[in-house]
């Protein structure tokens, strides 16, 4: 047979009676409550101040965040045509990424042309004729010197190690390149993402039959030039997951 409810009641009474309590004084409860009220008011005031400060400085920080540590400085070696806005002729204010460029300067040691290939799932590789280790941390501070700034058409032709691009024709590239300055793509209203993608607009992107995309154009990369780095990295996302946008290029 089970147990009676009365038995349960008596048991709980007995057990509770054996509990020795040490209740806090009523005054302690009052003091504790008042301290908490005071702290809550103080916390609310601080929160308001924090929100105000964040609304003021946060926006500024967001704007400055355009100076992303991963950014790659890209410019047109035909005269800085594709530099981001606000960077004309060395004016590097306003959070732009481009190095100072002298349009009239000719250099005997220009940056070589680059080519970028990417496949949709595995990410692309950007290959340059220069073979240097890519160090993302070093890239933002690497500013090209005046001597290193290419303003003339590079004499070096891109080397393509990938067999998938054997049909790449260097002569065609020379013919396709614009002879006049291309108006810079206005990314002043663009997001950080579009700013990163400015690299891709350095040259037309040509789709290949196997789904890969090749960037055609003789544009230099300022600063440290990577031996090979992923387009995923440049775009700040996964190329294979639709975060990379391609825009029509005039």
């Amino acid at each position: 047979m089970g147990f009676e409810k009365e038995e349960l009641r008596n048991h709980l009474d007995r057990k509770a009676g054996g509990i020795r309590l040490d209740p806090p004084a009523l005054r302690d409860i009052r003091v504790r409550a008042r301290r908490r009220q005071r702290n809550q008011r103080l916390g609310a005031s601080m929160a308001v101040l924090a929100v105000l400060a964040a609304s003021i400085f946060g926006v500024r920080a967001l704007v400055n965040d355009g100076e992303t540590p991963e950014r790659i400085q890209v410019f047109d070696d035909s005269g800085g045509a594709n530099t981001p806005p606000g960077t004309d002729n060395g004016n590097d204010g306003g959070g732009s990424n481009a190095p100072p460029i002298d349009n009239n300067h000719t250099d005997s040691n220009p940056q070589p042309a680059i080519s970028a290939t990417t496949s949709p799932r595995n990410g692309g590789t950007l290959t340059d004729t220069k073979t240097q280790d890519f160090q993302p941390e070093a890239t933002p501070t690497a500013r090209p010197t005046a001597e290193a700034t290419p303003t003339a058409r590079p004499t070096a032709t891109p080397r393509h190690d990938d067999d998938d691009y054997d049909d790449y024709d260097d002569d065609d590239e020379q013919q396709q390149e614009p002879t006049e300055e291309v108006a810079p793509w206005d990314i002043s209203a663009g997001s950080l993402f579009s700013r990163r993608l400015a690299f891709l607009d350095a040259g037309p992107l040509v789709s290949e039959a196997n789904g890969a995309v090749e960037q055609v154009g003789g544009f230099g990369v300022a600063g440290e030039v990577a031996e090979a780095f992923e387009l995923d990295y440049l775009a700040g996302g996964d190329v294979g997951h639709g975060r990379l946008e391609f825009r029509a290029f005039d």
């Binding site: 509990i19 309590l21 409860i29 009052r30 504790r32 409550a33 908490r36």
Partner: peptide, 22 residues
Amino acid sequence: LTLNDVELAQDAVAEAMTRAYQ
């Protein structure tokens, strides 16, 4: 009795009483 822990119960009641007072 509910928590099987007298100390925890005392802390809990002190906290609840403080909130009730507020």
